[in-house]
Write a protein that binds this DNA or RNA. Structure first.
Lengths: 197, 197
DNA sequence: GCCTTTTTGGCACGCTCATGCTAAATCCAT
DNA sequence: ATGGATTTAGCATGAGCGTGCCAAAAAGGC
């Protein structure tokens, strides 16, 4: 019997290299050559694990979205079983989407590049749309719960409110990514706190 | 004497073609060939008016920023000489940044593509930074004036407030550009209105 | 130590792009 | 009409990309 390897691990390693390259030079820099160099592999190796350049990019985007989603899911679970101050938890939950540390900033940079590219690249649309829908739904669910608990006025238009908050998160992320010097993490957090209903 | 032509007009026409191409296919689609086809010109003609592909792109971005700035300036003047309801004017002013109609949506699509590209393309940075600074400064100025008029609490942290509002505008624009089906103009306007201090 | 599979490396092709250079076409005041 | 600059068009070049194809290399259970 031959070598026994988990291809998924390899693919993951490659996709992490893709993220680093995209972070540094944008999606158009994620050529097979650049990614191979970044991953310390040969082009041939990457091609062995991905049918296509496009497949590599899609896999990377999916995994990026999944990683972000999982991190938020942890907080969301804690929110459901909330015995402590609920407002802080909501803030923490939404803050999880913000690039408050270097790791999340790197993710956000890549994610922004991918989602913007998704506008004109059909292959990226599914991931982008799913992530966007997930965020809006999550916010809506939290708000609805808050209304049910009498913490929020019933007059509030939840649709508008969800758009408002998700747009705020997107905008803060965008500014943190594009103009990090004038948008330090504390400012992000303050702006978020000031915007909660 | 030979032909007398205003080169600026030609350059402007070309840059409008660039915007249309970018809107349709992203910055990477703005090749000389595509732009020439879109403008109804030959590649040679474009190259006669721009030293470089990069020069063409920079000119386009600058002009795009200028066009947006001018449109806002008109509203800003009206705000300074405000005899009518000031709150509506502020809302209108900020709404001018939102892609509420097709023209502005097209501009916003191209602008988003350019600013994101600016993160990794030094040549685009100047324009992107200038526009971003302009927006934050404008919002800060308006808020400061509102405080002076006693319409806003002096306790308000104007820095946070300006970041919050500019991020909201960016986020709303981004969602309108990337997910237009789930972000109609009325929703944009409602979200903005709900967020004014 | 061998054998089959996995993994890696390399070559060649076709495509697209920006660009340098040159020649043709266009145009208008004279 | 025509001259001389503007404007357009075309060709050649070189770089970078993804990909098809094939062969070398490694790797571990038998």
């Amino acid at each position: 019997m031959p070598k026994i390897v988990v291809p998924e691990d390899r693919r993951t390693a490659v996709s992490e290299a893709v993220v680093r390259v995209v972070r540094r030079g944008g999606v158009e820099a994620a050529t097979l050559g650049n990614v191979a160099k970044e991953a310390g592999l040969a082009i041939g190796s990457i091609r062995h694990y991905f049918a296509d350049h496009e497949a590599m990019m899609i896999f990377t985007m999916d995994q990026l979205g999944r990683r972000i989603g999982e991190r938020v899911a942890v907080r969301a679970d804690r929110l459901l079983a909330a015995d402590t101050d609920r407002r802080t938890l909501v803030e923490d939950l939404l803050a999880e989407f913000l690039p408050l540390d270097d790791d999340r900033r790197d993710e956000a940079v890549a994610w922004l590049a991918f989602t913007v590219a998704a506008r004109t690249r059909p292959a990226f649309r599914a991931s982008a749309d799913a992530q966007h829908q997930y965020l809006r739904d999550l916010i809506t669910r939290i708000l609805r719960e808050a209304v049910a608990l009498g913490r929020l006025s019933e007059e509030l238009d939840l649709t508008v409110e969800a758009v408002r908050l998700s747009a705020l998160l997107d905008g803060l992320t965008m500014q943190a990514v594009l103009y990090p010097e004038s948008t330090p993490p504390e400012l992000l957090r303050d702006a978020l706190r000031r915007s909660l209903p």
